[in-house]
Simulated assay, not measured.
Amino acid sequence: MEYIRVTNENIDEEHICCAISNNNDIQVSSKKDWLKGEFDDGLVFLKSEERGKCFIEYIPAENAWNPIIADDYMYINCLWVAGAFKGHGYSTDLLNSCIEDSKNKGKKGICILSSKKKKPFLSDSKFLKYKGFTICDESDNGIQLWHFPFITNASLPKFKECAAHPHIEEMGYVLYYTSQCPFNAKYVPIIEEVAKEKGVQFKAIHLQSKEEAQNVPTPITTYALFYNGEYLTNEQMNDKRFLKLLAK
């Protein structure tokens, strides 16, 4: 399979979203606007020619929108291969490209989020282990930071203290999210409206900069939902999922 690197020069023409075919969708435009702001910080978005069915997105860890300390590492935001394309080595192609590029840029290794128990929108820990990654840190809610060092005795990436113990003081539902995930542009306003209609206390905090995202009380910043101070989930919700959650 051939791969295309998306840049500011071609992003307006390229399809970039794994599950959204319409480039005019607000979810796509939101994601593209976010990407445009990150390319100058070293973000790389490499995708297959098959309309975004396979892609990897990574950035120097100091510019990642996550509360981690990973000096001289590359951080993988997302490695995605759609179901129909799994089992053909495409994830290995993309990962190897990231490794080669990161080595050429003088990085000490790469790191990525996973979890103790498999969670949606996070890389599979079994795949990471198979590829030689090891766990270097874990938060209280089971979110893990995995790393693949290029050199012996490389320093271990770790979560900042604020993310190691996910908890907040605010009551009700509190959602931290970014525009890195395209689905948020559509579905966050929908669940805000549902909460309003049901009289449920709900607060959405849209993280607008890496500085904000690097200092939040959660390892996952694309979508992190809390209730009465406790972390609930990183799974993006539509109205039906949120109503089901409220019913509990």
Rank of each mutant, 00 (worst) to 15 (best):
E13K: 13
E235G: 06
F202A: 14
H165L: 05
I59W: 01
E9H: 13
F183H: 14
F150Q: 08
A185E: 14
S97L: 00
V194L: 11
I168M: 07
G37R: 15
E230I: 11
D101S: 14
C181I: 04
I11D: 06
L156F: 07
I76T: 12
F183G: 08
P157E: 04
A213Y: 08
S114Y: 05
P166C: 08
C181K: 11
I68A: 01
E230N: 15
P120G: 00
E211I: 10
Y73Q: 00
F159W: 05
I76N: 05
E13T: 12
K129N: 12
N234A: 13
K118Y: 05
D12N: 15
S97H: 10
T222R: 07
I151C: 02
D72W: 03
I11M: 14
N23S: 11
K160T: 09
E13A: 09
P157H: 05
T134M: 05
E49H: 05
G42L: 04
Q180W: 06
S139N: 11
E38C: 15
S48A: 10
S29N: 11
E212D: 13
S125Y: 12
D239A: 15
W65K: 15
D41W: 11
C162D: 04
I26H: 01
K210T: 13
A70G: 06
D25F: 01
E38R: 15
C136H: 02
I151Q: 06
I135V: 13
H165Y: 14
Q208W: 04
Q208A: 13
R5Q: 15
E2K: 11
I191H: 05
M1W: 06
I4V: 15
I220D: 04
K248V: 08
F159A: 03
E50K: 09
E169A: 08
Q214K: 14
P149Y: 02
K244D: 13
W34G: 01
C54L: 00
T92G: 06
G106C: 02
Q208N: 15
D72G: 02
N141V: 14
K117F: 12
Y90A: 00
S139A: 15
E193M: 09
Y58I: 10
K116H: 13
